[in-house]
Amino acid sequence: MNSVDSLISSFREAKKLRKVIGLIYLIQLGLAMFVGIFAGRYISKLNHSLNQIELLFRYDYSVLEDLKSIFPSDYGAITTVALLMIVAYMLIATFIQSGLLYSIYHRRYNFNDFKQGVKCYYRRFIGVGIFFWILAIGWTLVIWIPYMSNLFHMVEYWVAEYMIVWLFAFLGILYFIGLSFLFAWSTQTRYIMIYQSHWSWSVFKRGYRQVIARVGDHSKTMLLYLLILIIGYCIYFLLERFIGISGVGLVLMFLIIQQAWVMAKIWHRTAVYISIRNLQKIIRTG
């Protein structure tokens, strides 16, 4: 089975987890709505201004900048709440992952199995999550600190200025490859943990070996995953660019598009977890 077929079959299998996918979506939506409420209250400070109607029909830089300059603390509150909600979700995500991966690993798609996974693994998965986050931060620093700290030097001393741009692009690709590797490694590690049913440091090593042993298949899966995401975002931006959220009907239409895309990404990630499980299973049984 090639990677595309594998991903398609994973999507089909992910459908069986629709209750969990729905739960994830509702949790994300619930938390994000706090930010939405703050943003809505902020915009409502336009009160009875005609500019409020102007803002419905087009993106107006001046209206938003004037609002920011008059109510800077309200603007700051939105970013603070957004940050808090994102951190909160990152913690909740550990619970979700434990239940979700447990269900996928055991191919048991009952909601009770999801709960069983949460109960058994959420503590261990917090540790795994923190470990991989530290690795991700380290990778970020390794890739970008040398570039950023030498940027002025490169600009002033490199005759071939296009090299600076291409180096940026190259590092960007390398960065995403690294993050994709971490994603696959972290997923495989969790599967190993579920398989072993107990915690040991060796899970990281075994998870790493799983990825390395079938690095080509993992790469293809991750590449497909990224490609679908990129295409999805491009389509969204093109829609927003050429149609625009301008008017009551389009606000409603984009609400549906946006939420459908958010839901699709949860389904999509679930499918990727399934694809990665399939790669793991083959090596284990093989």
Partner: peptide, 19 residues
């Protein structure tokens, strides 16, 4: 609807960042 539009926008981008 203006408030609703920016409510949606904030919700959508927060969901994306969470993911």
């Amino acid at each position: 609807f203006t408030v609703f539009k920016y409510f949606n926008r904030a919700v959508y981008w927060t969901q994306n960042l969470m993911q």
